[in-house]
């Protein structure tokens, strides 16, 4: 509005990080609370367990953050991840590829899923919700078809399970998978904040028409953004398969919503144009810590999703309050 013209000197950055500060504060509060509630919560092994539980959804959430900032949505990440797990099983066990090739192949396969999503959305003009809903079902079915509804075991490559489970710090059981997750967080944060791709994601999300009229090839960049989200899906699928040392063809439905929940709790707007990787990671950790803490304190499981649901509502409401005040 014109009334808040030049004199409004509250820089946008500060109010944005306020939300993150609030989310981070909530995370600390939850951590402290559970530490008092149970003596077994704040132990190295339980904290590492939380990080492991956050790894797969967290990696999915990283890719989804880009998609949501660009004003899109991706519902295919949960079952897409399962399909990528099956594909790494196919490559390594059925086709006898070496581990590195099987892993790379599955990650690229994830990229392909994302590419198809991006193509359907920006070239065929299918709305993101529908395009990725379709892909969610296709991926779920293909996992079963390709695997013959049976789990695929890595008989030829028992070392594949080390990708997730190898202990990088001797004596501490800090798994390689968690380290990969932490590295991916940094990579995603740098891409979002420091590269042309990140800049276009924000631009497309805040005003797609204006970005297009500025001479940006929006269709191309949307395909790139969805493809990149797909690569994260591929990595998540490989790590999930490695953790169980088997590619389980069933499941994955609902994981996409957990990832989206993490993104939203972290202050990313579903309308696009706003959000950050740090926020998403705080969101993912809040969900993981809550779920773990409620289990450690033996809260009945029925109540666990009630609590997580309420946290999402509160987080989004706080964001709305902040916007009103700003």
């Amino acid at each position: 509005m014109t009334t808040i013209s030049l004199k409004n000197r509250i820089p946008a950055k500060i109010s944005g990080s306020l939300q993150q500060l609030f989310a981070f504060g909530s995370l600390i509060v939850i951590l402290v609370f559970f530490s008092f509630a149970s003596p077994y919560f704040f132990t190295t092994s339980n904290l590492v367990g939380i990080l492991m539980a956050a790894t797969v959804t967290g990696i999915l959430a990283l890719g989804t953050t880009f998609v949501i900032i660009a004003g899109g949505i991706d519902l295919s990440i949960g079952t897409g991840m399962i399909l990528c797990g099956v594909m790494t099983g196919v490559f390594q066990t059925y086709w006898g590829w070496p581990v590195w090739a099987g892993v790379l192949g599955a990650v690229l396969f994830g990229g392909l899923i994302g590419f198809v999503n991006g193509f359907n959305i920006s070239v065929l003009g299918i709305p993101p919700f529908i395009a990725t809903l379709g892909m969610m079902l296709v991926a779920s079915g293909l996992s079963l078809v390709i695997s013959g509804t049976k789990p695929i075991y890595f008989k030829e490559h028992p070392e594949f399970q080390l990708l997730m489970n190898y202990s990088v710090i001797p004596g501490m059981r800090f798994p390689l998978g968690v380290l990969i997750f932490l590295i991916l967080i940094v990579v995603a944060a740098v891409i979002l904040a420091k590269t042309i791709l990140g800049r276009y994601a924000y631009s497309i999300g805040s005003n797609e028409a204006a970005t297009e009229l500025s001479g940006v090839n929006v269709a191309k960049w949307k395909i790139i953004i969805y493809s990149m989200a797909g690569l994260f899906v591929g990595i998540a699928g490989v790590l999930a398969a490695s953790r169980l040392s088997s590619a389980q063809p069933v499941g994955g439905m609902g994981l996409e919503l957990e990832a989206i929940a993490a993104v939203v709790i972290g202050g990313t707007s579903l309308q696009g144009g706003k959000g950050s990787i740090v926020g998403t990671m705080i969101g993912a950790l809040i969900v993981a810590v809550l779920t773990n803490g409620l289990r450690v304190t033996a809260v009945p499981q029925e109540w666990q999703s009630v609590v997580v649901g309420c946290v999402i509502l509160v987080a989004v409401y706080m964001d709305i309050l902040r916007r009103k005040r700003a």
Binding site: Y40, F41, N46, G49, T291, R295, V296
Partner: peptide, 12 residues
């Protein structure tokens, strides 16, 4: 897996 780990953590 994560559920079992939480239970084990809570009950050494």
């Amino acid at each position: 897996t994560d559920v079992a780990k939480a239970i084990i953590a809570a009950n050494p």
